[in-house]
C-alpha cells in the first residue's frame, strides 16, 4: 500500500528571468513500512521536498497524496490537522522547546490534538522509554547532549502514531557516537514497520534505507534498491588479506 505518492511536484521561487525551481517535477512513491533515503548536495531541494510533503510549505504545482488523501490543496487548518495525525517531523536543529522538559516536549503534539493530559503524559513516558531516555524525562533540553535531544525529537514525532515520519538531516548536528544512537533508533522504527522518509547527505544514514534516491537540482536522478548483502567480507574491508 502506498503511503505517500507525489506526481509532478514542483516548488518555484521568483518569476521570469529569476525563476528558481527548488523542486522540479518530482514523482515519489513510498510504500508502507519502507525506509526511503533522499541524498543530494546542498541546495538540491531535498529539504524543500520534505517540507512540501509534510505540509509545512505550499507547492507551486503537482499533486501530493498521503494515506489515500490528496493533500496539496488543503487549507492551513487542514494541514495543521494533518501534521497532528498523519505526519511526524524530525529536524536537523531538533527544534525542541528549551523551556519544556523532555517529557513535556514529547507530550505536546498529543495535547495539541486534544487528548487528555493523562493520556498524553502516559504516551510520552512510553515513547521516552522506547528511545531509551526514561531517566531524562524531567531534564531540560539544554542539559541534554545532541544525540539525546534528537532522540527526544524522534519520540515527539511518534506522539500521535503518524503513518509517515519525515526526517530532515536528522544527524546533521550530531557527532559520530550520537549518529550511531539515532541510526539504531531508525533501524528499530523500521523493524517496527514505521514508514520513514529521510533526507540526508550522510551516507551512513542512507545506507540504512531500503531505497536510496539521489536528487540534483530539484529532480530525482537516480534510484537504488539497497536490499541484499554485499559481495566483499568485512575482513577485506579492514585490510586483513591473506
Amino acid at each position: 500500500m502506498s503511503i505517500l505518492s507525489t506526481r509532478g511536484l514542483t516548488k518555484s521561487y521568483g518569476d521570469g528571468e529569476s525563476l528558481v525551481r527548488a523542486v522540479d517535477g518530482v514523482d515519489l512513491e513510498v510504500e508502507s513500512g519502507e525506509t526511503v533515503a533522499i541524498m543530494g548536495p546542498s541546495g538540491c531541494g531535498k529539504s524543500t521536498l520534505l517540507h512540501l510533503v509534510g505540509g509545512l510549505d505550499r507547492a507551486s504545482g503537482g499533486e501530493i497524496h498521503l494515506a489515500g488523501r490528496r493533500v496539496d490543496q488543503l487549507t492551513e487548518r487542514a494541514l495543521a490537522r494533518l501534521r497532528r495525525t498523519d505526519v511526524g517531523f524530525v529536524f536537523q536543529a531538533f527544534h525542541l522547546m528549551d523551556e519544556l522538559t523532555a517529557l513535556e516536549n514529547v507530550e505536546l503534539p498529543a495535547l495539541l490534538a486534544g487528548h487528555s493530559p493523562r493520556a498524553a503524559k502516559a504516551r510520552a513516558a512510553e515513547l521516552l522509554d522506547r528511545v531509551g531516555l526514561t531517566t531524562k524525562a524531567g531534564a531540560l533540553p539544554t542539559t541534554l547532549s545532541g544525540g539525546q535531544r534528537q532522540r527526544v525529537a524522534v519520540a515527539r514525532a511518534l506522539s500521535n502514531e503518524p503513518v509517515l515520519v519525515l526526517a530532515d538531516e536528522p544527524t546533521g548536528n550530531l557527532d559520530s557516537a550520537a549518529t550511531l544512537d539515532v541510526l539504531r533508533l531508525f533501524e528499530d522504527l523500521h523493524d517496527a514497520g514505521q514508514t520513514l522518509v529521510i533526507v540526508t547527505h550522510d551516507e551512513r544514514i542512507a545506507a540504512t534505507a531500503d531505497r536510496l534516491i539521489t536528487m540534483r537540482d530539484g529532480a530525482f536522478v537516480d534510484e537504488t534498491r539497497l536490499t541484499g548483502g554485499s559481495t566483499g567480507n568485512l575482513g577485506a574491508l579492514a585490510g586483513l588479506e591473506g
Binding site: 487548518r77 495543521a80 490537522r81 501534521r83 497532528r84 517531523f89 525542541l96 495539541l112 515527539r156
Partner: peptide, 16 residues
Amino acid sequence: RHASAVTRALGATPAQ
C-alpha cells in the same frame, strides 16, 4: 517566532 513555528509544525492551526 521559533516557538510559534514549532507549535504549528506540531499541528496547531493558525486559528489556535
